[in-house]
């Protein structure tokens, strides 16, 4: 089977090859969907934004507005990220999340205390736990982990996309890892008791 680069697939799609787009969608859907999901934290909203993202991508490619200058996947994620952030900003402006007693809840969990991590937890058992814990990270930290670790964007690219300094992005990544480690320790403590 011949492996096509993203550029070749985009070109083929511009020339009317629908199958080329189906391959692009299949190839990138998980990254794009999860970047959105990490930001909006709601499956249905994430699916809406995911759909909007790809419709925008189709329109831009078909109208030849896509310039093959960098990685296609990064361009795609930038579009998804901007749409998700736009949505998130709108919602944040209009809603306040409260608990059952009417108290305003913070959208982000903060982990301030330092604890020593126990390294005895087996990685294979923890994959699903860590995946769940990732969702509990503050959105800005989770976003950097997803973009850097899974979407393969460089810290510099993330900084440019999010309009932050590279040190801020590196700091967020570091705090994300520290918080994850702390949560893992707490998780293990609960399991032992």
């Amino acid at each position: 089977m011949q492996l096509w680069s993203d550029s070749a697939l985009v070109k083929a799609y511009q020339e009317g090859n629908e199958q080329a787009f189906a391959i692009l969608l299949q190839k990138h859907q998980k990254h794009v969907y999860n970047v959105i999901l990490m930001i909006v934290k709601d499956k249905f909203i994430a699916e809406d934004i995911f759909q909007d993202t790809f419709m925008k991508v189709i329109t831009l490619i078909q109208s030849k507005q896509y310039q093959d200058e960098g990685k296609f996947s990064h361009w795609l994620i930038r579009i998804a990220y901007n749409l998700a952030v736009d949505y998130f900003r709108k919602v944040k402006k209009n809603t306040t999340i409260t608990d059952s007693e009417g108290e305003i809840l913070s959208q982000e969990n903060r982990f301030v205390e330092e604890q020593e991590a126990d390294t005895s937890i087996l990685q294979t058992e923890n994959e699903h736990i860590v995946a769940e814990l990732l969702k509990r990270l503050p959105s800005e930290q989770r976003e950097v982990v997803v973009l850097r670790h899974y979407a393969d964007m460089s810290f510099k690219e993330i900084a440019e996309m999010t309009n932050c300094s590279i040190n801020t992005i590196l700091g967020r990544m570091r705090y994300a890892l520290m918080n994850l480690r702390k949560m893992l320790t707490q998780q293990e403590f609960k399991t032992l008791n």
């Binding site: 998980k30 969907y33 999860n34 699916e47 790809f54 923890n126 899974y150 994850l180 893992l184």
Partner: peptide, 23 residues
């Protein structure tokens, strides 16, 4: 901690097939 991060298959979910069909 970086080594503890789950593989993409575990960490990532997929959108519903219906959404992909719409696209």
């Amino acid at each position: 901690t970086l080594g503890m991060l789950p593989a993409e298959e575990t960490a990532f979910q997929s959108p519903e097939p219906e959404i992909l069909n719409n696209i």
